[in-house]
Write a protein that binds this DNA or RNA. Structure first.
Length: 585
RNA sequence: GCCCCCGUAGCUCAGCAGGACAGAGCGGCGGUUUCCUAAACCGCAGGUCGCAGGUUCGAAUCCUGCCGGGGGUACCA
């Protein structure tokens, strides 16, 4: 049950009773209070309505209040200042709502009334080279959105659109032909692939001098040789094709290892190579329909004077990723019939997606929502984007290892009595969680200054803080020898005698708002903000009042209800972000 | 040149379909441990919300201009 929706429904009725023509456009002005002094929720709609009706806002507010039927839910509304309507929810109502969600696995978060089929395209790394921090955002944000939308009842299809057909394969093929170590290949093909990739890059760098300038690279003999191998692959050269087929599973295994560690799974992994056979036909079709035209021997789509044209076939006959993306849209629509396709890709590609979507609509795909869920760059300490080609990019795995190592050090210090295997498991959950949370807690659209310490911090608004709060609650149940299930069967509404407990109750009931907001705007940081508020509200109770040793049995049970709900809300929130909880830390 | 994004406390960032004195984390300073995990809690210090106009009863939030930073911009993805 979403409190905000409930209140808005009541306000809609009140406005209708006052003959307001279009009440819905004012309902956004019902929102959580900006300050606890003003109650729990506030409605700011009397001011614009006053203007509309040519009446003093305070009078309008009074009229609305008179028509409001909120007696069961809230205390008497107060009109304040220029016409704010302040609402304070009744504590007994809060308590009853808590009781209602106590046995509910979803903790009151409803499924959407109109489930949609949503394809989410995220992660999409280039295979054949190690994933680095630059891949983190798309992977983690995409995964969190997929989990959240799925939880809300949508039919989510995740698709990892791998870069498995590009120049990096030319490099690998070149490396394979010139530098491979057959022994190593037999022993550990994945590692040998990595070695070859790194080696070839090294050779290119040496051949091109100190600079990695594009033009110099063009004249670089080794880079040129790699490009030739790529071209041969695309042209169907049997030897290179065979090498590609051999190497792909190795590359995929390497990726899969990291995805498993991150607990990320895709419904489909259809890379660029999958669409390669369709590209010529796509270009033909676009030409036939008059959407594309020839220009300077290339095939392009003109998009008006403000934008450069989009090239779908280069002068040399090669296709571009625009062509691939168009083929992908057509395939996804024909296969999945989605209402939306979301691309979780960094903001620098916004022009590309703008063009892509424009062409797709001209092509006839108008009934599907195409959205670029963009996010900011990962910046270095110098505030410059960490570039893929730069040697300085931090490999994802090294980041994860370091995070887990730090977590392990704390676990060892804090819980030396736990068995080794359990400590290792906790460190993994805490370390990976820290990395994910640090990214998700950030506004998606902002740039991101990469910093080891910040990313791996375990205090403040971090996954560790949430996991710790969770673990401590579970510890209370263990110590009290009470099973959560037993508490979940409680039939009486919890007591909320103190401000801290009441505040915690309110936050527990606001989970649906947080999840729905996050989904509506595709912003996981709404969930992290919520969790932070919730955990703080809980800590205020935990710090100030005994739970197992509460003054009487009723209060004890009541507090245990709050504890159980808090733990589950944290667990649920973290699970939507792809972060695990642990029973002990 | 044109287009997009950003500029909030020492640092990193929330807040931005306008709302009542601008928030957090970290860092700094000072406290809390016979008590359910101190990976915690409490307090203090710290900001002309880049600048200037405009719209509005009300602007960090919307509009315009300027300054500063980043990104993109026909054959790389």
């Amino acid at each position: 049950m979403n409190i905000l929706h409930l209140l808005r429904d009541h306000f809609r009725q009140a406005l209708l009773a006052l003959n307001i023509a279009d009440p819905d456009k004012f309902l956004d002005l019902v929102k959580p209070a900006t300050d606890p002094r003003f109650g729990d929720y506030q409605a700011n709609l009397a001011m614009p309505l006053g203007k509309l009706l040519g009446r003093p806002p305070r009078e309008v507010a009074a009229d609305i209040v008179a028509k409001l039927d909120l007696d069961e839910v809230a205390e008497a509304p107060e009109v304040a200042g220029p016409g704010f309507i302040n609402l304070r929810l009744r504590s007994d109502w809060l308590a009853n709502q808590l009781l209602a969600i106590l046995p509910d696995e979803r903790l009151g978060v409803a499924k959407v009334g109109n489930p949609q089929t949503i394809v989410i395209d995220y992660s999409s790394p280039n295979v054949a080279k190690p994933m680095h921090v630059g891949h983190l955002r798309s992977t983690i944000i995409g995964d969190a959105l997929a989990r959240t939308l799925r939880f809300l009842g949508h039919c989510v299809i995740t698709d990892n659109h791998l870069g498995d057909w590009g120049t990096q394969f030319g490099m690998l093929i070149y490396g394979y032909k010139h530098y491979r170590d057959d022994e190593a290949l037999k022993r550990d093909p994945v590692r040998e692939m990595l070695r070859l990739y790194v080696l070839v890059r090294q050779k290119i760098k040496e051949a091109g001098g100190a600079s990695e300038d594009e033009e110099e690279e063009a004249a670089n003999p080794i880079a040129e040789a790699c490009r030739r191998e790529t071209a041969k692959l695309h042209a169907g050269d049997p030897e290179n094709l065979e090498l590609w087929r051999r190497m792909m599973p190795w590359c995929l295994a390497e990726l899969e290892r990291i995805y498993r560690r991150l607990d990320i799974h895709f419904d489909y992994t259809l890379g660029e190579s999958f669409y390669h056979p369709m590209l010529a036909e796509v270009v033909q079709d676009l030409l036939q329909r008059g959407i594309a035209t020839y220009s300077d021997d290339a095939v392009v789509v003109f998009l008006g004077d403000q934008q450069p044209p989009a090239i779908i076939r280069k002068r040399d006959g090669a296709f571009t990723y625009m062509t691939t993306d168009l083929a992908t849209i057509r395939y996804r629509i024909e296969k999945f019939h989605p209402q939306a396709i979301l691309y979780v890709v960094d903001f620098r590609q916004s022009l590309h997606f703008q063009q892509l979507f424009t062409i797709a609509r001209r092509w006839g795909y108008r009934d599907v929502r195409l959205e670029h869920i963009s996010f900011g760059s990962v910046l270095g300490a110098d505030r410059k984007p960490i570039k893929t080609r730069e040697g300085g990019a931090i490999e994802l795995e090294a980041l994860l290892d370091e995070a887990v190592r730090r977590a392990r050090a704390i676990v060892d210090a804090n819980s030396p009595d736990l068995p080794e295997a359990q400590r290792a498991e906790i460190a993994e959950a805490v370390g990976i969680g820290a990395v994910k949370y640090a990214d998700l807690a950030q506004n998606r659209t902002s740039d991101y200054v990469f910093n080891w310490d910040k990313m791996l911090a375990m205090d403040g608004n971090t996954a560790t803080y949430m996991q710790y709060a969770y673990a401590r609650i579970r510890s209370i149940f263990r110590k009290g020898e009470i099973s959560p299930e037993e508490i979940q069967r409680v039939r009486e509404s919890p007591q909320l005698p103190t401000p801290e407990e009441r505040n915690l109750a309110l936050w527990l009931l606001r989970l649906p708002e947080a999840v729905e907001n996050a989904a509506n705007e595709y912003k996981p940081n709404y969930i992290t903000s919520y969790l932070w508020e919730l955990a703080n509200a809980y800590n205020a109770v935990y710090q100030n009042y005994p739970i197992l040793r509460a003054p009487d049995e009723t209060l004890r049970r009541s507090r245990l209800v709050l504890c159980d709900l808090t733990a589950r809300a944290i667990g649920l929130g973290l699970s939507l972000l792809g972060i695990r909880t642990v029973e002990q830390m």
